[in-house]
Simulated scan of single mutants.
Amino acid sequence: MSEKTDQFVKAVYETVVQEGLHMYKEMYEEEISSSEADLYSQAIHMYQQMNAEQQRLMMHIIEVVMVDTVAHTFGVIDGTSPLTDSEIEATVLLDGTDTDMELSDSFIGYLQDEDLYP
Protein backbone atom coordinates (compact mmCIF):
# COMPACT_ATOMS: atom_id res chain seq x y z
CA MET A 1 0.00 0.00 0.00
CA SER A 2 1.42 3.36 -1.00
CA GLU A 3 1.75 6.33 1.31
CA LYS A 4 -0.67 8.32 -0.87
CA THR A 5 -3.26 5.55 -0.62
CA ASP A 6 -2.77 5.48 3.17
CA GLN A 7 -3.30 9.23 3.40
CA PHE A 8 -6.32 9.09 1.11
CA VAL A 9 -8.19 6.31 2.94
CA LYS A 10 -7.50 7.96 6.31
CA ALA A 11 -8.79 11.30 5.01
CA VAL A 12 -11.91 9.66 3.57
CA TYR A 13 -12.56 7.87 6.87
CA GLU A 14 -12.19 11.10 8.85
CA THR A 15 -14.30 13.12 6.42
CA VAL A 16 -17.05 10.69 5.50
CA VAL A 17 -17.37 8.48 8.57
CA GLN A 18 -16.17 10.51 11.57
CA GLU A 19 -17.45 13.92 10.49
CA GLY A 20 -20.60 12.38 8.98
CA LEU A 21 -21.38 10.49 12.17
CA HIS A 22 -20.84 13.66 14.21
CA MET A 23 -23.26 15.54 11.93
CA TYR A 24 -25.87 12.77 12.27
CA LYS A 25 -25.53 12.79 16.05
CA GLU A 26 -26.00 16.57 16.16
CA MET A 27 -28.98 16.35 13.81
CA TYR A 28 -30.63 13.61 15.85
CA GLU A 29 -30.20 15.57 19.07
CA GLU A 30 -31.65 18.86 17.79
CA GLU A 31 -35.08 19.91 18.94
CA ILE A 32 -37.88 19.49 16.46
CA SER A 33 -41.52 20.36 16.40
CA SER A 34 -43.76 17.38 17.05
CA SER A 35 -45.94 18.60 14.16
CA GLU A 36 -43.20 18.04 11.55
CA ALA A 37 -44.19 15.06 9.43
CA ASP A 38 -41.22 14.59 7.06
CA LEU A 39 -39.17 11.39 7.37
CA TYR A 40 -36.13 13.09 8.89
CA SER A 41 -38.25 14.63 11.62
CA GLN A 42 -39.89 11.28 12.28
CA ALA A 43 -36.49 9.59 12.54
CA ILE A 44 -35.21 12.31 14.89
CA HIS A 45 -38.32 11.98 17.04
CA MET A 46 -37.89 8.18 17.15
CA TYR A 47 -34.22 8.57 18.15
CA GLN A 48 -35.10 11.03 20.91
CA GLN A 49 -37.63 8.58 22.35
CA MET A 50 -34.94 5.89 22.70
CA ASN A 51 -32.92 5.28 25.85
CA ALA A 52 -29.16 5.97 25.80
CA GLU A 53 -28.24 2.37 24.91
CA GLN A 54 -30.70 2.30 22.00
CA GLN A 55 -29.35 5.64 20.77
CA ARG A 56 -25.79 4.28 20.95
CA LEU A 57 -26.87 1.21 18.97
CA MET A 58 -28.57 3.34 16.31
CA MET A 59 -25.42 5.47 15.87
CA HIS A 60 -23.38 2.27 15.63
CA ILE A 61 -25.67 0.96 12.88
CA ILE A 62 -25.31 4.24 10.99
CA GLU A 63 -21.52 3.98 11.34
CA VAL A 64 -21.51 0.39 10.04
CA VAL A 65 -23.57 1.42 7.02
CA MET A 66 -21.24 4.35 6.32
CA VAL A 67 -18.10 2.19 6.58
CA ASP A 68 -19.58 -0.58 4.43
CA THR A 69 -20.71 1.93 1.82
CA VAL A 70 -17.27 3.55 1.61
CA ALA A 71 -15.56 0.14 1.40
CA HIS A 72 -17.93 -1.05 -1.32
CA THR A 73 -17.60 2.19 -3.28
CA PHE A 74 -13.82 1.91 -3.07
CA GLY A 75 -14.13 -1.67 -4.35
CA VAL A 76 -16.17 -0.49 -7.32
CA ILE A 77 -13.73 2.24 -8.25
CA ASP A 78 -10.55 0.22 -7.63
CA GLY A 79 -11.76 -2.78 -9.62
CA THR A 80 -12.19 -5.33 -6.82
CA SER A 81 -16.02 -5.20 -6.90
CA PRO A 82 -17.75 -5.14 -10.29
CA LEU A 83 -20.78 -3.00 -10.97
CA THR A 84 -23.99 -4.97 -11.47
CA ASP A 85 -24.84 -5.33 -15.17
CA SER A 86 -22.09 -2.95 -16.27
CA GLU A 87 -18.82 -3.28 -18.15
CA ILE A 88 -17.69 0.19 -17.08
CA GLU A 89 -14.38 0.28 -15.25
CA ALA A 90 -13.24 3.24 -13.17
CA THR A 91 -9.72 4.34 -12.41
CA VAL A 92 -8.65 6.50 -9.50
CA LEU A 93 -5.31 8.26 -9.62
CA LEU A 94 -3.74 9.74 -6.52
CA ASP A 95 -1.16 12.29 -7.63
CA GLY A 96 -0.92 10.42 -10.94
CA THR A 97 -0.51 6.95 -9.39
CA ASP A 98 -3.12 4.30 -10.18
CA THR A 99 -4.85 2.85 -7.10
CA ASP A 100 -5.68 -0.36 -8.99
CA MET A 101 -7.14 -2.88 -6.52
CA GLU A 102 -5.81 -1.05 -3.43
CA LEU A 103 -8.46 1.31 -2.08
CA SER A 104 -10.96 -1.13 -0.59
CA ASP A 105 -8.31 -3.37 0.98
CA SER A 106 -6.37 -0.35 2.25
CA PHE A 107 -9.50 1.16 3.78
CA ILE A 108 -10.49 -2.07 5.56
CA GLY A 109 -6.87 -2.66 6.60
CA TYR A 110 -6.63 0.83 8.07
CA LEU A 111 -9.81 0.31 10.08
CA GLN A 112 -8.59 -3.06 11.37
CA ASP A 113 -5.07 -1.80 12.17
CA GLU A 114 -6.43 1.17 14.11
CA ASP A 115 -9.23 -0.89 15.73
CA LEU A 116 -11.83 1.38 14.12
CA TYR A 117 -13.92 -1.25 12.34
CA PRO A 118 -17.40 -0.96 13.81
Rank of each mutant, 00 (worst) to 15 (best):
A37G: 05
F74H: 07
E36L: 13
E53G: 01
E87H: 09
T84G: 00
H60G: 12
H72M: 13
A11K: 13
E19R: 15
G20F: 01
E36R: 14
L83H: 04
T97G: 00
S2E: 14
S41F: 02
Q42M: 10
I108M: 09
A37S: 15
Q7L: 13
D100Y: 13
E87V: 02
A71V: 09
T99S: 15
K4Q: 14
L103T: 08
V76D: 01
A11G: 11
E26S: 11
F8H: 12
V16S: 07
G79S: 05
D78H: 07
Y28P: 01
D6H: 10
M46D: 11
Q55W: 04
L39T: 06
K4H: 10
D100K: 15
Q49D: 09
T73F: 11
Y47N: 03
I77Y: 10
V16R: 05
T97C: 04
E30P: 00
M50F: 11
V76I: 15
S35L: 12
I88S: 08
V64D: 06
E89A: 09
H60P: 00
V17E: 05
F107P: 04
Q55M: 03
Q55K: 14
V67D: 01
D113S: 13
E19A: 15
D85Y: 08
F8W: 12
S81L: 08
T91N: 12
D38L: 00
Y40P: 03
E89Y: 02
D95V: 01
L94Y: 04
P82Q: 06
D113W: 00
Y40K: 12
A71L: 07
G109H: 04
T84I: 10
E102F: 02
Y47P: 02
L111S: 04
M23P: 00
M1Q: 09
H72D: 12
T15S: 15
V64Q: 07
V67M: 11
V67Y: 01
D115W: 02
A43L: 13
E3A: 12
Y47I: 04
